[in-house]
Amino acid sequence: MFKATVTVTLRKSILDPKGKAAEQALHQLGMNELKGVRIGKYIVMDVDTDSEAKARELVQNACSKLLANEVMEDFQISIERSTS
């Protein structure tokens, strides 16, 4: 069993209205050092397989097919063997 963590963010070339709004609010709070705020999604799941390569392949496919829309989003996958 593996634990997969996926982060989905808007592509760099695409304006992120939520990130921009959050950044403006941070600047209003005086935190002017914080720049380039991007807001995305964080998705975790268990992958029921014994092979890490297989786990990665399954999650990759899940991202391409459903979890991310590659027209506007990028995703990053991290896979860890479950300890429990």
Binding site: P17, K18, A21
Partner: peptide, 15 residues
């Protein structure tokens, strides 16, 4: 989303 038309929808610019 079905790929029958090209492109995607973002949140409205003013949220």
């Amino acid at each position: 989303e079905a790929g029958l038309l090209p492109g995607a929808m973002l949140h409205n610019q003013d949220l």
